[in-house]
Design a protein around this nucleic acid. Structure first.
Length: 850
RNA sequence: GCCGAAGUGGUGGAAUUGGUAGACACGUCGGUCUCAAAAACCGAUGGCUUCUGGCCGUGCCGGUUCGAUUCCGGCCUUCGGUACCA
């Protein structure tokens, strides 16, 4: 054993040992209980960043802890390898996406190994491997068979200059990010997954996901957005046709005085009278030319135009003018809204602007509302008025009764409406999984027969960034014979959204080599669901909802028998750091400043706010520097100690040094006492030895509880630090070497999940022939926790005035007497009457005087 | 606007079921060692104060309670998400 803590040598040596032994590979042939731990897999951008270090350090603590507790732990790692950055790199640097991706994976794999994460590398795969994505193609074909995948036209961002579709994040200020051309809306036929079929089940199961944070479940519930309401038919005047409307506020039906349609509404033009025609057409053209994002902006002014037609309110019989309005959305409800200006703020503003009729139908108890003087719509609950037979009811009761009445009279239906929309999965991109269908002029859309899978993504393409996806220009790829009729046909050149690959990768880890189907049922049965999933909170809705949807689809297609993919979810916070900038040169990297001055111009550097680490803000910290300077163990310890996992973590070099110092402190105390471990002796029973043992075992209890389910790693580490402090202060080690050695061994065992390299090294230095996993997780000796005496806090009128020590077996009366006998307490009680004494056994006495 | 989370020393944070507010760590200050420095070790460290004592203090105001960082009501601020959802 060396005197100095040589982190580099120690870490490299243990990483080699683990790799040679293939230490973390697991099999389902095992009589231990399984535990499947998964962290969200990374996009292979080229380097790991502090967010990865944090995510995977948290995961590794749990994996190693569960292993020490005797579980058969599946802890896999892989790569979310398709996606836009690879294409951008190809365009910018002339390197093929496949090459770029493979090289990045190689670099990042090394970095992860250098961090000492305990992955089963045998199960590693990248989603761009054909052995992975071909199974996704099969799943798609079966979804198509079941009507769970379908094609419909939808609107995309289109750059006419680049002849390509842009993702929302590629649109900057309504313009193409590359050429600056104004982006148009374009209708394209796109593939969709029928996630709406599962809206009800996805919502219902949120109640069963007790291992998920409530905030994430709330976000998912809101995203699914179930609302109960009515579909009501409004007869159109001088026509046999009706206008169908969806509302959740049928209680306000008597107050509906006009109707608003979306400009995209199919009946909009048909309803327009000749004299209004030019005005309506101009309005439609104007609104449709506006940017969709702007249309949903905050201060968007409400505007509309009268069609010239009327419909009839089915309950009040009132004639209602039909307007087109810019704020009505075609893709929610029916694209037509019954407008109730007295009880909806948007309708209120609209009615004021166009001087439309208003009728109050709900008002607060005893406070009549006046349509002329009310400053805004009344959207709260109240009592029904001007509503015929429903007058006098609460509006909540009227909601039910009006709905029943409408159904009874055949005027409407009760309906459930979801905010959730089907998932568009077509991407006009090269670096993705090809959608396996063929278009034949004669046979139409023809799925690629399963026996012809996989549709392999060709690698002999040139990416220029112009003229759309290269697949559409790759004749060898798209020119095929129709599988049905044999005539020449064209292959689909769109690829799947990369969210599709990340929706089922967790299941493939159970059987990454399985060659007969996407999932080996036996493996899935053993390993799934994932017991603990860990990742960034930014994926709270999309990724996690898609993965839940896909799990249910795969269940219904017979691939596996799982309802929900992730039993427990931990969402971690971001890694943040203050920014620094020079007034002249903008954002600066830390190494571009010297003594608080810009190294280029010498001006004082402005320290900015603490923000999420990002390359663009130049406030990133490269994990490699940390590993070299302090070691992987210190990097891990810092990310775990500085904040609880779900909170944002603020970078602090000083705090990193503190962690490094702590590891040195542990190293030193064990080195200094190395001779103690040479000959083992039993743990002593003398009072001083028992005192140290009590701290040792209290720490075991605390650390176990903090890790297991609570994930309070910061307090777990604090507890170990306290034990180390107690060891430093224990000056009877010569007399009680047993208790002393036990305390030191416990420190090493408790630190093992957090800082595995130094822990293994110290463990072997202590003379153990086997590793820490063999030793298992230390158990708390309940006997050792028992105290002879207890410290009791004594309060007078709720304020702490004294602390007394009593025998642990003292009863309440004894404790009370001892408290009242205390000199200080007597002074506070003197000349006053003791009204009450509250005794909390083992903790506190409160004397109430007055 | 709505939904969600949070607000505690100079700093990161702790207080698990209503029971000692500030554990642990960083920083700062003092001491030991040293020719000196670094490292290490030991100690102090919420504010105020008339200082063997006392008062104030967990965003603000109020309430419940013997006792509130914790529960309730009303506000303020910050962060995250989201939106003309009828």
């Amino acid at each position: 054993m060396q005197e100095r803590y040589d982190h580099i040598a120690i870490e490299l040596a243990w990483q080699k040992t683990w790799a040679n032994a293939n230490k973390f590979a697991v099999s389902q042939q095992c009589d231990k209980q399984k535990y499947y731990l998964l962290e969200m897999f990374p996009y292979p951008s080229g380097r790991i960043h502090m967010g990865h270090v944090r995510n995977y350090s948290i995961g590794d603590v749990v994996a190693r802890f569960k292993r020490l507790q005797g579980y058969n732990v599946l802890h896999p790692m892989g790569w979310d390898a398709f996606g836009m950055p690879a294409e951008n790199a190809a365009i910018q640097h002339g390197i093929h996406p496949a090459k770029w991706t493979v090289e990045n994976i190689a670099k990042m794999r090394l970095q992860l190994k250098r961090m000492g994460f305990s992955y089963d590398w045998d199960r590693e795969f990248a989603t761009c491997n054909v052995e992975y994505y071909k199974w996704e193609q099969q799943i798609f074909l079966r979804m198509l068979e079941q009507g769970l995948a379908y094609k419909k036209s939808s609107i995309v961002n289109w750059c006419s200059e680049c002849q390509t579709v842009l993702a929302n994040e590629q649109v900057e200020d309504d313009c193409c990010w590359r050429c600056g051309t104004q982006v148009d809306d374009k209708e394209l036929d796109q593939w969709f997954f029928k996630i709406t079929n599962y809206a009800e089940e996805l919502l219902d199961f949120t109640d069963k996901l007790t291992g998920w944070p409530e905030s994430v479940l709330t976000m998912q519930r809101n995203w699914i957005g179930r609302s109960i309401g009515c579909e009501i038919e409004f007869p159109i005047e001088n026509s046999s046709d009706n206008m169908k409307v969806f509302t959740t506020r049928q209680d306000t039906l008597y107050g509906a005085t006009f109707m608003s349609l979306a400009v995209e509404h199919p009946k909009a033009l048909a309803l327009t009278t000749a004299d209004q025609h030019s005005e309506v057409e101009a309005f439609i053209a104007k609104i449709r030319s506006q940017d969709k994002n702007k249309r949903s902006g905050d201060d968007y002014e409400k505007e509309g135009v009268f069609t010239g037609s009327y419909c009839i309110n089915p309950l009040s019989g009132r004639k209602m003018p039909i307007y087109l309005a810019n704020f009505v959305l075609m893709d929610y409800g029916t694209g037509a809204v019954m407008a109730v200006p007295t009880h909806d703020q948007r309708d209120f503003e609209f009615a004021k602007k166009y001087d439309l009729q208003m009728v109050v139908v709900i008002q607060p108890e005893g406070q009549p509302l006046n349509v002329d003087t009310m400053p805004q719509a009344w959207t709260d609950s109240g009592v029904m008025v001007n509503s015929d037979r429903f007058d006098g009811l609460s509006n909540e009761a009227a909601k039910e009764q009006i709905a029943d009445y409408l159904v009874g009279e055949g005027l409407g239906d009760k309906t459930v409406n979801f905010r959730l929309r089907d998932w568009g999965v077509s991407r006009q991109r090269y670096w993705g999984n090809p959608i396996p269908v063929i278009y034949c002029d004669k046979c139409g859309v023809v799925p690629v027969p399963e026996k012809d899978l996989p549709v392999v993504l060709p690698t002999d393409v040139q990416l220029t960034g112009e003229g759309g996806s290269p697949l559409a220009k790759h004749e060898e790829f798209y020119s095929v014979a129709c599988p049905k009729c044999g005539q020449s046909a064209r292959r689909e050149t769109d690829t799947f959204d990369t969210f599709v690959q990340s929706s089922w990768y967790f299941a493939r880890y159970a059987c990454p080599e399985y060659a007969d189907a996407p999932i080996d049922k036996a493996a899935a049965e053993y390993w799934l669901p994932v017991d603990q999933y860990i990742g960034g909170v930014e994926h709270a809705v999309m990724h996690l909802l898609y993965a839940r949807f896909f799990t249910k689809v795969m269940r219904d297609l017979g691939y596996m028998d799982v309802d929900e993919p992730f039993t427990n979810l931990l969402t971690q916070g971001m890694v943040c750091k203050e920014t620094q900038s020079c007034p002249e040169h903008g954002w600066l990297y830390p190494e571009q400043m010297v003594d608080g001055k810009c190294s280029q111009c010498g001006q004082s550097v402005v320290i900015g706010r603490t923000e999420k680490m990002s390359k663009s803000k130049m406030n990133v910290v490269d994990p490699d520097h940390l590993i070299v300077k302090y070691g992987a163990d210190t990097a891990r310890l810092f990310t775990l100690f500085a904040a609880p996992p779900e909170k944002d973590l603020e970078w602090s070099e000083q705090s990193v040094e503190g962690c490094y110092r702590f590891l040195n402190r542990v190293w030193r105390v064990i080195y200094d006492n190395r001779k103690l471990f040479a000959k083992r002796c039993a743990v002593e029973t003398a009072s001083e030895a028992r005192k140290l043992r009590r701290i040792t075992h209290r720490t075991i209890k605390k650390v176990t509880e903090d890790i297991d389910g609570r994930f309070h790693f910061n307090t777990a580490i604090s507890a170990v630090m306290e034990l180390v402090n107690a060891i430093y202060l224990f000056d009877a080690k010569k007399e009680y070497p047993g208790a002393f050695a036990e305390a030191l061994e416990t420190v090493v065992q408790l630190l093992a999940p957090f800082v595995p390299h130094i822990s293994e090294e110290l463990w072997s230095c202590m003379g153990h022939d086997t590793d820490l996993e063999q030793a298992g997780w230390p158990l708390c000796d309940q006997q050792a926790l028992i105290e002879d005496e207890k410290l009791i806090v004594v309060q007078v009128n709720g304020k702490v005035r004294a602390k007394i020590t009593v025998s642990a077996s003292a009863d309440n009366a004894t404790i009370e007497a001892a408290a009242l006998a205390d000199e200080v307490i007597q002074r506070f009680v003197a000349a006053k009457t003791v009204r009450k004494v509250i005794v909390v056994p083992g903790k506190l006495v409160n004397v109430v005087v007055g």
